[in-house]
Amino acid sequence: MSTATRTASTGAAPGAGPRPEMPPAQRSVPRWVRHLFAGYLPLIIATLVIGLPLLWLILSSFKTQGEILTNTIHWLPGSLYFGNFSTAFTIVPFARVFLNSVIVTVIGAGIKVILAIISAYALVFVRFPLKKTIFMLILVALMVPAQISIVPNYVLVAALGGVNTYWGIIVPTLGTAFGTFLLRQQFLMFPTAVAEAAEIDGASHWTRMVHIVMPMRRSAIATLALIYIVLEWNEYIWPLVIVNDPNHMTLPVGLTLLENNEPGSTAWGVVMAGAVLVIVPILLVFIVLQKHIVTGLTQGAVKG
């Protein structure tokens, strides 16, 4: 549908349809003026305000120290200079740190998705008398802020020898209230007929879950996996407290080493190179799968 055929007032509903007569209050201002000042201009400003800092980050990571420490702005790097990246790699064992992040993200997100699937399946399709109570316990857990549990969790995991280990980073964040809640909503909308038919057919729970429910809800599961990958990759406060050895750090924690390295005059090019390493992978995932990520992260919010 072209913009010419729709009502052009600032507040008009999308799809309100063409109308021959404009209300008198809106006819006074030409349509293109409204479109420009109440539409395109703010849109472009917002895109620049959000996009330019990210562009600046990427450009700066390729600038030499001379191009950064100057009184005149060098918008573009003179050439593709990789020195910042190689310096960053000498300060922080980035290959190792990057690998740690990948391992923690894959294992953590993977286990969370599996836990969410089996919990949601049990809550929807398996008979049990206290299901409502158990679901309430999970709902309440969803509202308990994860951040305030760091101290007791640190005390426990440290006592069990989890400092500077993968399991110490991964296990305490595995309880999946959010994923269970999200998938339960999806499974509840599952056609009862299909589920009952399979049950009557004598299919075991395993068969029903793996061969019937999961394939039919694969987009919801994929969205959940995506959200967990993003959250796990960006997770900061817990890995920060439970790891102090650079060889066990995840990327966000490892970056802190770059910042602390030179107090006073920060080597910004090197720091930007590090920030690129943590931001760009998720940015690429987001560019490719943005629709799924946006719906997944904002799902169910509007229902109130």
Binding site: N234, L251, A275
Partner: peptide, 13 residues
């Protein structure tokens, strides 16, 4: 969706 650490460093610069 981006890391708060990466975003913080970018803006610090």
């Amino acid at each position: 969706v981006l890391s708060g650490v990466g975003v913080g460093l970018t803006w610090l610069f």
